[in-house]
């Protein structure tokens, strides 16, 4: 497996810089070139569900970053002790515990967000990005690298859902982070001028359209083709 050879290569030169080129790539690759949503098309379900407004999307993004990075870290720490026959259920147990922690914290400190997101925070467990990174990376790599890898994938997920949420909230509700942008813009052009919002953007269909456009633009620029 390529992951194993990678690890051997690291062992030869133990004093690798904390932010060496290879490690930077772990974080930056999933942002564009290996983006979990636009290239791997993972985690679509929550990308559609939570992105009507920026604020819950941001909370969701932070939760996913926490869960992916932490589960990568924990699984990577245990990678040599996990029995391979039950590794999936072990991963699931760790991820589920972390997700429950996030959910409980939200319930205690941000109850309004909890009400809005509770179902979707719970569904982070089934977000393919999490288990995907555990299987593909954390099981074969050292903890620090795994955290970086998790951060990269989660950030790649985050910026896409934030971008989708930005357009959906702007066009659907005429606001950004709850600030009524459309009202301000309309007032510049006089009392009779009113920017219309589009109800389609508020429904999940809007997310499909925005996401499709983002994928289209990105693949046109990078020349990526499915194989």
């Amino acid at each position: 497996m390529s992951a194993e050879t990678l690890e051997k290569a690291i062992e030869k030169k133990p004093a690798e810089a904390l932010f060496s080129k290879r490690r930077k790539k772990l974080v930056t690759d999933p942002l564009i070139d290996e983006n979990p949503i636009t290239i791997q098309v993972l985690g679509i379900c929550s990308a559609l569900a939570v992105t009507t407004q920026m604020k819950p999307t941001l909370v969701m993004a932070i939760s996913v970053i926490f869960v992916v990075a932490m589960s990568n870290f924990v699984i990577s720490l245990m990678r040599n002790t996990i029995p391979s026959r039950v590794r999936i259920i072990v991963q699931l147990a760790v991820v589920a515990t972390l997700v429950t922690l996030v959910s409980e914290l939200l319930k205690a400190f941000a109850y309004d967000m909890y009400k809005e997101l509770s179902v979707f925070v719970g569904l982070i467990i089934t977000n393919c990005i999490v288990m995907g990174r555990l299987e593909a990376f954390a099981l074969g790599n050292k903890p620090y690298d795994s955290v970086l890898d998790g951060l990269g994938s989660a950030l790649g997920y985050s910026w896409i859902i934030l971008a989708v949420a930005f357009f959906r909230e702007l066009w659907g509700s005429g606001a950004v982070f709850g600030i009524p942008v459309f009202e301000y813009v309309s007032s510049i052009f006089g009392p009779d001028f009113k920017l219309a919002t589009n109800g389609l953007m508020v429904s999940p269909v809007g997310a499909f359209i925005i996401l499709g456009l983002i994928i289209w633009v990105q693949r046109t620029k990078t020349g990526y083709v499915e194989h």
């Binding site: 914290l105 319930k107 205690a108 109850y111 909890y114």
Partner: peptide
């Protein structure tokens, strides 16, 4: 243990929030 501990610690705050 981790989960029940968290629930014990956060329980009162959650009740207040509700």
């Amino acid at each position: 243990l981790l989960l029940s501990g968290t629930s014990q610690v956060l329980g009162p705050m959650q009740k207040e929030a509700i």
